[in-house]
């Protein structure tokens, strides 16, 4: 205790605290970054290369070594090493400068894509992660899950065919389903369709779509369609998109008569003493929380009104099927209603 003095103790403490923070803070901590760079072994690099090639080939693009290194963001020499090894193992081959997948390579790539999309499905249906996180988490998980684990996961999720963005999940045997539908700009005015896919590339456009309340599975009705803009209604909101943005939405036209209600509002906009009928629950609400709402009686056709206003502004209690149930604002905003 001879060298003790409160100042040095405090300084030591703060140095340690800052060090721990710099090392371990979520995502940007040095520890995680280092772990990602050095920890990602050859297997990860090989699998990422395969996956990239698969996506490039699918969209009809050609890749050479330079572009590949650019997209992957791994150290140049490591990529070169990996490619060497992959050629030897007959996963890829060169056609002059262009990298191509062999049949084995394509099979392998499909497996990775399958795990990635299954995991996204899992995150969307069974966890509380927000949709901005699904992709990154799946990126690391796709290298971890073994074949058997992926199968178990698939069974647990009910053998899904599409991931939460609407992209098909390749089957065990490598079959890939077709996304059903056409690009939104091809839908004539007044026709009705269901959104089946939201393209997540390029990111700028994807971000723009995500920022809107546009969700897979929801119905749309086109009100205006010309060279400058496409206007459509979905879940009671009106959206105006430029054709190139709208082209990232795939929509399956619906033939048989469905009524897409006009004047749809959100439960969160209901005022005291107003009454309304529930039209449905927005597709934004999914998984467990959607089921809860349904079980509690928030179903199509139910009458609803405000029972109690909250002194702090939320949650309000709603009277539904004879019981008073409190919902938070964000939940109420996902319930579509029509005022009486």
């Amino acid at each position: 205790m001879t060298t003790y003095n409160p100042i040095s103790a405090l300084i030591l403490f703060f140095v340690i605290a800052v060090l721990l923070f710099v090392l371990f803070r979520p995502i940007k901590g040095w520890f995680w970054i280092l772990k990602k760079n050095f920890g990602s072994n050859e297997k990860t690099i090989i699998e990422d290369i395969l996956k990239q090639l698969y996506h490039f080939e699918n969209s009809g693009n050609k890749v050479d070594m330079k572009t590949l290194v650019q997209v992957l963001g791994f150290n140049h020499t490591r990529v070169v090493d990996a490619i060497k090894k992959m050629t030897i193992n007959d996963l890829i081959y060169f056609e002059s400068d262009i990298l191509k997948l062999t049949d084995t390579g394509r099979e392998y790539a499909l497996r990775i894509v399958r795990v990635h999309r299954l995991w996204e499905r899992y995150l969307a249906d069974k966890t509380g992660f927000s949709r901005s996180e699904w992709h990154d988490r799946a990126e690391s998980m796709e290298h971890v899950l073994t074949h058997d684990e992926a199968e178990q996961l698939s069974v647990r999720l009910g053998n899904p065919k599409f991931d939460p963005h609407g992209d098909p999940i390749p089957t065990k045997t490598g079959k890939v389903a077709q996304v059903n539908g056409v690009e939104l700009p091809l839908l004539p005015v007044n026709s009705i369709g269901r959104i089946t896919h939201i393209e997540d590339e390029p990111e700028v456009i994807y971000k723009q779509i995500i920022a809107e309340k546009i969700h897979i599975g929801s119905l749309v009705r086109v009100v205006e369609n010309n060279a400058t803009r496409i206007v459509f209604l979905s879940e009671g909101e009106e959206f105006k998109l430029a054709p190139i943005v709208a082209a990232n939405l795939t929509v399956a036209p619906i033939e048989n008569e469905v009524v897409v209600e006009d004047n749809i509002a959100r439960l969160s906009s209901l005022d005291e003493h107003e009454t309304a009928k529930i039209i449905g629950i927005s597709k934004e609400s999914r998984g467990e929380s959607r089921r809860r709402l349904l079980d509690l009686g928030f179903v199509k056709g139910a009458n609803i009104s405000i029972d109690l206003m909250n002194p702090l502004g939320e949650p309000h209690a709603y009277l539904i099927k004879g019981t008073s149930i409190a919902l938070r604002k964000d939940q109420a905003a996902k319930i579509l209603i029509k005022r009486d």
Binding site: S289, A326, R328
Partner: peptide, 15 residues
């Protein structure tokens, strides 16, 4: 915000 971020979260409160 950190360790429990991924757990499922639902809300309902019956009066």
């Amino acid at each position: 915000k950190t360790v429990l971020k991924g757990e499922v979260s639902t809300f309902n409160l019956e009066l």
